[in-house]
Amino acid sequence: MLRSFDFIGSIQYICFKNIPLLAKVSLIDNESSEKSRKCEITNFFKSFVVLENLKLNEASRKLFAAAAGGVPTRLPFDLKFFKYLRISSVALDQQGFSDVMFSHLKEVNLQGFLATKAGMQFIKLLLDKSHVLVRMLIKFYIDDYDHCQLYEYLTKTYSLIVVVNAFRCASPNAEVAFHIEYDSDYDDL
């Protein structure tokens, strides 16, 4: 039985059936064109019974969001075994998660532009509903090549860090770490 699935390609062509032991899924959608692409999100995830580890890149997340009709209000799979979440950029509406508990979620890695209302809500939700969370890593990528915008990026990043550190955390052992990676072109120096 399939327990782990790592995929890079066009995820619209994946169809899972009878995968009761699939616990680890990594989906990296590399399809550049989104025109006429459809992915039936509810059918895609309905077979995930014991999903523990999920990794989605931004293109995968956007495809699922588009298939759900925009910003999804709920994740389309059972979360009771969920332990690890790695996601590039987030857009989830927290209102649909009031009854959700991430009972086993231990590690979260988030990356992308998170200084948005949806990004902040998602971080707050994860901290508030994850009672056994050990580590949340939030990665920022800042393009410091454009020095005019660098100050703006750093200000938004610092503001996000201050706000996140003020959020209530359900796990007394949780560590929230921030990593800033600069993307300069040093070849021109």
Rank of each mutant, 00 (worst) to 15 (best):
N165M: 12
L85W: 01
L2A: 06
L54R: 05
K139I: 01
L110N: 04
L27T: 04
I28V: 13
S130M: 04
F167N: 06
G9W: 10
S159K: 14
S33L: 11
V132S: 05
V162N: 10
Y153N: 02
V25I: 15
L189A: 15
E31V: 10
V134L: 14
M101G: 02
F178D: 06
K83A: 04
A91F: 07
V134D: 05
I123A: 00
R61S: 04
K17T: 15
R37S: 08
A66Y: 05
L133I: 05
A170K: 11
L150C: 14
E40M: 02
C148K: 13
D188R: 15
S184I: 02
D188I: 11
A91W: 10
D187G: 13
R135H: 08
N30H: 11
K106N: 07
A177Y: 06
D99G: 13
N109P: 01
A177F: 06
S4E: 14
T157G: 03
F16A: 09
L137I: 06
L2C: 06
S60C: 14
D6Y: 14
D93A: 09
E107L: 14
L105N: 03
D185S: 12
D183H: 13
D146P: 04
A174D: 02
Q111R: 03
M120W: 01
S130A: 14
K117N: 04
L27I: 03
Q111D: 12
G96R: 09
